[in-house]
Design a protein around this nucleic acid. Structure first.
Lengths: 258, 258
DNA sequence: CGGTTCCTTGAGAGAACTCAACGTCGGTGG
DNA sequence: CCACCGACGTTGAGTTCTCTCAAGGAACCG
């Protein structure tokens, strides 16, 4: 597997720095550490190993089949995961934003089942397997958070596996993106940083169908499209379309420690 | 949840009988105990708790949301698992034949995510959770078998989630059924005991499309259909259709204990 | 400033769906 | 025992949705 693009893991000197920076992390609000107690945070910080920069779109984090020695938390940017079938066709499995965890699906099988590359310049937190397991065994709360996130991811991919119309899929996608990337609330525009082709592939539609559906939504006044930015004007109507798909919001309020 | 149809668990007196009957079980060849050593079989037999009969088609084994206190191994018959979405529409998740295990997807979440009902009169082996965990912890081989089966199930449902044509789906389905239910080799006819509606739902097609596709295959001489029985005449051609779907055979040769 | 990739729109084709009708089968009750 | 009923299976006709093919414009990069 091509590893040349992959930044070397930080030396020992970096670890302390990384461990100290959770409070400065731009993704802290949506990371699984959000709201955990100080002692749990300590466990987590000790598990984190350093940051991995992916300086440009298209840079690979790992390839499918690589030995899975770590999971990664997105700090900034957007990562897409995908597989390649025997026909050589790419199949986008998901998009991952700050706070999302990548590589969990490899915990059972030792190798990443899907490749991961940057959609835009990104930065990730590297959490070595052994360190993760250590932190989880010492902190039931972190374990619980992880399980919640895993089941949420599963539900999302399961929802997409149904057969839904293009309008249903696109509406669900836009709302899901809104929900997962919003920071300032419901009114902020959504940035679809990935290409239309990747969106279409993910939703199992043709690129043109995604375009046309977005255009139709715009004509109906449900949203406004400008390049990769989408402003939602009528979330209720979009939700009416998206409802049958099931899962729109992936980021529910995280329960505080009991 | 309606439990009235559910037979009461056997009393203590039945356990010994059940434990002694693995060698007599009609599903032994395809059960995960196939080929395991005597000591592993002992562990397994001690885990099994008794048999559950579902005397008629439509009888429910459990409902979605029920507390998952056991997994079940199909001894005879055919079980379908399904979920019901918020629109009240049934969604068939899978069909399970002798040797298949039902309820594994509840091991992590404590409740069955999908309901299970009999397609034809069936009989199952009940394996209580705690007993299963005990047997698995004592027998790495059983654990390995279980993991193999789980990943196989996952691959199968993942394969179906792609977007494939009706011909590809139906061909893959027929071959998969052939592969999973055949006992006497490649020439035996396949019994599709579930309704066309269930097949269509499972494959995410219309009932009529499944019918027409089977008819077309028959006209092309690939198979012969008579009610619920399908005789495969040209497996190679069917496989050509099914190939892109990926997973056709679920039951590979089980490796013997190393 | 070319060249490439991406995005958008149009036109046409094809696949699958819906609606509808009809035959069969199995169970139920008169 | 037979008539009736409902569920299932099959086939036809028409429609709709999405895909493919094609072309032009916009954005990005070297």
């Amino acid at each position: 597997m091509a590893y040349d693009f992959r930044p070397s893991l930080p030396e020992t000197g970096n670890v302390k720095h990384a461990a100290a920076s959770c409070s400065l992390c731009p993704a802290a609000n949506s990371c699984i550490v959000n709201g955990v107690t100080a002692v749990d945070l300590t466990h987590w910080s000790q598990a984190r190993f350093g940051h991995v920069p992916l300086t440009a779109a298209g840079k690979a984090l790992f390839e499918a089949g690589d030995v899975a020695d770590a999971v990664y938390v997105v700090r900034a940017g957007c990562i897409k995961t995908f597989t390649v079938d025997q026909g050589g066709h790419e199949r986008v499995r998901g998009f991952h934003f700050p706070g999302d965890i990548i590589g969990l699906d490899a915990l059972g099988v030792n190798r990443y089942p899907a490749a991961a590359t940057a959609v835009v310049p990104s930065q990730l937190c590297c959490v070595p397997r052994v360190a993760l397991q250590g932190a989880l065994s010492r902190s039931p709360l972190l374990m619980q958070r992880l399980l919640e996130r895993t089941s949420r991811d599963l539900a999302l991919s399961l929802a997409l596996s149904g057969d839904y119309s293009a309008e249903q899929r696109v509406a669900a996608f836009v709302l899901n993106m809104q929900d997962r990337t919003a920071v300032a609330g419901w009114t902020a525009p959504v940035k679809l940083s990935m290409t239309r082709r990747d969106i279409a592939n993910y939703l199992r539609l043709a690129t043109e169908t995604v375009c046309r559906t977005l255009t139709r939504f715009e004509q109906q006044g449900l949203l406004r499209v400008q390049d990769k930015t989408v402003l939602i004007l009528n979330a209720a109507a979009l939700y009416t379309h998206a409802r049958p798909v099931g899962i729109v919001r992936s980021r529910q309020a995280l329960p505080l420690a009991a």
